[in-house]
Write a protein that binds this DNA or RNA. Structure first.
Lengths: 415, 415
DNA sequence: TGACTTTATAAAGCCCCTTTCCTAACCCCT
DNA sequence: AGGGGTTAGGAAAGGGGCTTTATAAAGTCA
């Protein structure tokens, strides 16, 4: 809420590093043009990042007849970031270098019984240890660990206020993790992680207003507004999945009827399929992934049932996303998470059409609808991005230069 | 998008003046506490406002044993602001002093045939002239004129991109108005005007995140996010009225089916009534205002039909507003505009209940749902507020201290 | 009247960004 | 090989802003 000139600096630092990561190597000139900052500012920020060893100078580039431009690039080995994606059935951990390449990966299954925070934390700790070992990185290089945990999270206190899948209430997750993990920790939820990942590395890069629609088992949206993540007053913004689109429609696990999620989440899509063709071979009653995969293949083979199911789903999605477009007037809507990735471009094409039918022409004209270009788990990447942001933020911290002269007692001055 | 330290100053100036208007007289101490700024900053800002004659020193207040606090208050006669609310059937103009009291009022009817921009502009010019004359104000005191015009507006160029009621397309409204009105002009739409009015003077004061729901003939929402108005990428955010809540529901004038507006806008409410009790005496088929008035009276008299209609309407509203709560996680939802004002607290009570049934518990717990406390036409007040913001913004402008030394030709230097 | 409080203003310090000036580095041409 | 010409990059100066600290101003109370 309260803005200070330091926030401007932080924003600019983000922008510059983002640009460098996106386009390495690059010159200061190019950075200035891309960010709109002055050359001088870019130069000092680049200097800072060089000092931090996050980027390095990598040579020169001919200029049109004059002094060559110095090129900088991400120093991939300048540090490591860890992203943790805690989900209902698994804990997924990835270790990234600073170019955001995945250096190591670990996955632990969370079995249905294991709903105690300690058990989950155990899995996380094990997986984090594993990726660090695999990558052969010294601990000091790890700049931070971002953790995405479903449900409502208070990132300031590190408390998981509510996690629906395990019925957690006010679990002090950060404290529990701190006991096992020595690196700086950053907690948030997958919606916001996904949004930040798109903002830094995906389809929302350079956009001030974007909506990242998450289509998985659950459904939600991450909001980029005014160039930054919108959290809402209690850090629970983005619960788009429980928007009513069919009054008195399907029963949702939230207790309501007709939520978007019940039509376009993976279980909802399965229900769409079952209602259309109860005996379809595409349906794998107990396996969401298999069913969505089958639908994807079915579409490629022009299977009429698959096509119809996807079209129906796109219709629901279209109505829901059109509302988002009308309300936010974003530059881009990004479809993300595994269901979107699996159904891919054919789904997006249907969605584009459906949204165009429902949205108002003016906001629609300004909005692009695209598939997330992020290849890996966006929650992992986003969580790692939180760690990166955290590492960059502390750069600006006053560097502890306390007064060196000892306080002298006024009552007993030196003679 | 691009933030500079000047924006911080502007924000702080807004905050201080807002606080002074809200609580006059007040001391610098109180302002510092309320805004979170340092005493020094508050002092300089107060100094600026004193110089502008927007506020005045009005005496002193005892402090606990020390120097008394100087008190400042709005200098009501320090300037005048004009708010223009252009609507489908009328043009409403109000002239405010700096304490935002209405000094004069004028209304012109726009007849069904008069859909030409020139005709509407003529009404506006006449009404503006009238309020200035009524108030007996010298023209120089008028700080600006805010104009709220329905539909999509490009406030930068002053073009009314699209006004549904008159089928305007890309009308250069600002240029047309400039020909008749000599004061600084500020154009925007009623949704955003309403939101700004709430932010400055209403239920959203001091809140960083608020949603202002407009219930009139049309329906929409103004969004206060991160302490400021959210405009979206093409200044058309807030079109909440065309959110689908009943897939394949009632036909809306936007061409879609099941939009919120078709259930909770005034015509929608009339339809709710007709469907429930086709022959009801509450229904005035051609008169929205009369029907809503009748419903309001009916509720007071415990008329079962009226109660049921309002409850049904609240149910739709509840589903729609719950979605907003889930998505934005605002501190407050404000119900505004004439339908909300007429149905009043009984409606709000029903809505509160309905929203609580639909929204997720966490965001719901952080959200208050209230009726707009603004007594007059919120679009007028909001439009005037745009003018006030405009007047404050130009304070910071570099005060024309251009280079005084004439540029000397380099090829012919003075000997 | 003097000590103590509290408020308000002035000064100094720090942060940030930009503009301007100057040096560095490279090209090409003579 | 040695100058222009050109472009890049850095240092310094300048302009905003906000805060902390010191000082002046204006009371109260003993």
């Amino acid at each position: 809420m309260k803005r200070t000139s330091r926030d401007i600096r932080t924003t600019n630092r983000y922008q510059v590093l983002r640009q460098i990561i996106a386009e390495s190597p690059t010159s200061r000139q190019e950075l200035a043009a891309a960010t709109g900052l002055s050359l001088a500012t870019v130069a000092t920020l680049v200097g800072e990042l060089l000092d931090l060893r996050m980027i390095t100078e990598v040579g020169f580039e001919d200029s049109a007849g004059g002094r060559p431009r110095g090129l900088v690039a991400v120093n991939a080995s300048g540090g490591a970031l860890i992203g943790v994606d805690i989900a209902e059935t698994y804990v997924h951990v990835e270790l990234f270098d600073l170019a955001l390449n995945v250096l190591a990966r670990a996955e632990e299954d969370v079995r249905p019984g294991e709903s105690l925070p300690e058990q989950v934390v155990g899995h996380v700790a094990a997986a984090v240890g594993s990726v660090v070992a695999q990558a052969g990185i010294e601990g000091a290089r790890v700049l931070g660990v971002g953790v995405s945990v479903p449900g409502q999270v208070d990132r300031a206190t590190g408390i998981s206020e509510y996690a629906p899948n395990w019925d957690w209430h006010d679990v002090p997750l950060l404290d529990l993790l701190t006991e096992h993990i020595a690196y700086p920790l950053y907690l948030d939820n997958p919606l916001r992680a996904g949004a930040v990942a798109e903002l830094w590395f995906g389809a929302a890069r350079g956009r001030g207003n974007a909506v990242v629609v998450n289509l998985g088992t659950g459904v939600g949206a991450g909001l980029i507004l005014g160039g930054g993540l919108h959290r809402g007053v209690s850090n629970s913004a983005g619960e788009w999945g429980h928007t009513t689109i069919v009054l008195d429609g399907r029963l949702c696990r939230c207790g309501n009827h007709g939520c978007v999620e019940t039509y376009v989440g993976a279980p909802g899509i399965m229900l769409n399929l079952r209602e259309l063709s109860p005996g379809s071979t595409l349906l794998h009653p107990e396996d969401q992934t298999a069913t969505i995969d089958a639908l994807s293949r079915g579409m490629l083979e022009q299977d009429p049932v698959a096509l119809k199911v996807v079209r129906d789903t796109a219709r629901y999605l279209g109505a829901g996303i059109a509302s988002l477009v009308n309300i936010f007037n974003p530059e881009v809507v990004v479809l993300s998470s595994w269901v979107a990735a699996t159904l891919g471009e054919p789904l997006v094409a249907e969605v584009r059409e459906a949204v165009a039918r429902h949205a108002l022409p003016r906001p629609m004209a300004a909005t692009e609808i695209v598939l997330s270009p992020i290849p890996t788990d966006p929650a992992c990447l986003g969580a790692a991005t939180f760690a990166l942001e955290g590492a960059l933020q502390s750069v600006g911290q006053r560097n502890g230069k306390k007064r060196t002269t000892p306080a002298r007692s006024r009552t007993a001055p030196p003679s």
